[in-house]
Design a protein around this nucleic acid. Sequence first.
DNA 1: TTGCTTTATCAACATTGTGTTGATAAAATT
DNA 2: AATTTTATCAACACAATGTTGATAAAGCAA
Lengths: 197, 197
Amino acid sequence: MSKKMDPRVVRTRHMLRDALVELIHERGYEKITVQDITSRATLNRATFYLHYRDKLDLLYQSSEEILNDLTGRINLSFDGEFDFSSDKPHGIFIQLFEQISQNSRLYKVFLTEKNMPHFTSSLMDVIIDFISKGMNNVQPDDQMLTVPREIAVRYYAAAFLGVIVWWLEEDTPYTPKYMATQVMRLAVKGPYINNPI
Amino acid sequence: MSKKMDPRVVRTRHMLRDALVELIHERGYEKITVQDITSRATLNRATFYLHYRDKLDLLYQSSEEILNDLTGRINLSFDGEFDFSSDKPHGIFIQLFEQISQNSRLYKVFLTEKNMPHFTSSLMDVIIDFISKGMNNVQPDDQMLTVPREIAVRYYAAAFLGVIVWWLEEDTPYTPKYMATQVMRLAVKGPYINNPI
DNA sequence: TTGCTTTATCAACATTGTGTTGATAAAATT
DNA sequence: AATTTTATCAACACAATGTTGATAAAGCAA
């Protein structure tokens, strides 16, 4: 897919994406113009319009690329098994934190800068998807759930995403494996030792 | 505070805020201009600049007003007690869903429309605050937590917010009290009946 | 009510950014 | 080496911005 692309196109889009990320970090998405992006990328403004309709289009396409990459890698490390009985986090959880860690600059900007909502909800969709698969795997019977399935899925997906955002805001102070273990523990055991449930 | 305001000012700001909410719903925040907002509000464009610096300023001030209102009401219904041993949701949880339900149009637009990130993170701060207080109340000893406190706080705050967003996206299919019960149950008991923890 | 103050309206203006075009140069592909 | 594709550049009409000064209308205080 990306192999049959003209190298100039690849280069140009990379430069535009990088410029976008930098500028959002510096000024916030609202305060950036197409002019700013192209001059930061040392490209002509007309070149921008050869690739993207407008600023929002660049943002969306960049989000899509990075998230397609993530889902691809998550699916690779999903062996169809979910084991929630131990403290050991599932490979998917580790993979999730691992991938984000490796692109932390982009993820941090897209997830934590003010007025960057689209990316957050797209990543949420990715997480909802694998949480949903995981729950179906562990307990396919709706009768055995304490709350409606869709609410539980949202609950855990949002919890995970929230921890990811915190982790990025703090500039990834813990390893991906450690983080995966923490969210696993909260989901399985809750926050308190000797939980009186 | 709002009592000593000129009624024309109150009226104008209300109209601008309402127009903003409507237009975001129709076209998305990105696609709106100050022109659009004032003509929808049947006001002169110059009047807009009498009150707000730009589109973003209107958004931020509107967010702040609605969230100040929310925190005020939450604090009123906080009696200093937290009881997580039963299924009965705490008054704060109910109050949270109740308030959002009563302003569901604005909350839905501000929380679920693409590219509306600021409001989401502000509401997150509100929720983080009371979750944090609640956890300190139940278990002030860090040694008795399964994970670092700040991670747990983020985890539960994000989980709650995620459920709220889902609930708004689905046009509030359940009552506030029902919703408060569900998130309470997930936090305390987890998703599965006969949880083998 | 009257007089004073504040707010909203309106038209006009310079400025900035947008999105497009047609011609030219440079790079990649075959 | 010939052909196709991409990037550059200058120029364009258009739309939106943010500000101004004058006028009218609404609110307030006595």
